[in-house]
């Protein structure tokens, strides 16, 4: 029993989108359907305007509103803190997409935004959305946990790289990509982050580094007023690129 969580240091994040690309390659995402995305945002007016950004994975909330509204119990909270979708049960009603305050759930619509439509270039023969040439090994496909290429007409979302993290030995406090023992179990976006702005660990383990970071650097959660209690924390220090008003933050002492 763990409660996996992520810490993203916005002071370190450069907005390079390497995490987005790593996630797309790891999970065979359709173009534009980025489970992990970086949102760019213009703040202020000319001449003092500036570009800010925010990496946004699924928050894997403790009290996830998407789980509450699912009419078929396809979306569920795993015992290790993951919020996952059982694609065998999902009917594609998209209620969870309306309920999620972070907009991190995706549904492959009939109309593709980018051309060419990759679903026609690499069509699937077994009812999947598409069949990309760089798909993850087929033995890792796990529709019960929403891992792999999704079937048609289901909602998909970030799994915190369930296929990697769930193999970590029990009681591991942190999944550090620099530690050869845990690197294989670390989510793809964390492994690939060039400025090492991402940390991944067990929020319930008193020995974990993520707990220490959140406590010492005053980690904040997005949209905390919704009561969803995300398990992704942002470190928004002095020089962070987080917009001043984007989340609740504790006052400077």
């Amino acid at each position: 029993m763990a409660r996996w969580g992520m810490v993203i240091d916005l002071e370190k994040c450069t907005g390079c989108q390497a995490c987005t690309t790593a996630c797309s390659m790891e999970n065979s995402r359709l173009p534009g359907e980025n489970w992990q995305d970086v949102l760019f945002y213009n703040e202020g007016e000319y001449p003092s305007g500036k570009l800010t950004w925010l990496p946004r994975p699924c928050m894997h909330c403790e009290n996830a509103s998407c789980v509450d509204v699912c009419p078929t119990k396809a979306t569920y909270k795993d015992k290790d803190g993951f919020v996952l979708i059982n694609w065998d049960l999902c009917i594609g009603c998209k209620y969870c997409m309306i309920a999620c305050p972070y907009g991190v759930r995706f549904y492959a619509e009939e109309k593709q935004k980018t051309l060419p439509d990759v679903r026609e270039v690499w069509p699937s023969k077994d009812g999947k959305v598409w069949d990309p040439p760089w798909a993850m090994p087929s033995h890792l496909n796990d529709p019960k946990h929403g891992v792999g290429i999704q079937p048609k007409n289901v909602v998909s979302k970030c799994t915190f790289c369930y296929h990697r993290v769930s193999k970590a030995p029990q009681g591991t406090p942190d999944l550090d990509p620099n530690d050869p023992k845990t690197r294989d179990f670390t989510p793809a976006c964390v492994v690939t982050c060039a400025p090492t702005a991402r940390y991944f660990g067990d929020l319930d383990n008193p020995k974990s580094y993520v707990r220490k970071l959140i406590a010492e650097k005053r980690g904040v959660r997005l949209q905390d007023h919704t009561g969803n209690r995300p398990q992704v924390y942002y470190l928004a220090g002095e020089a962070a690129s987080i917009p001043e008003t984007r989340s609740t933050r504790t006052k400077k002492v």
Partner: peptide
């Protein structure tokens, strides 16, 4: 969808809620 993404940036009046080290 776009409205929700924008909402992550919207200024809110509440600026001093307990959060952060609430692990």
């Amino acid at each position: 969808v776009c409205r929700k993404t924008q909402a992550l940036f919207v200024r809110r009046d509440v600026t001093n809620e307990p959060s952060g080290n609430a692990v």
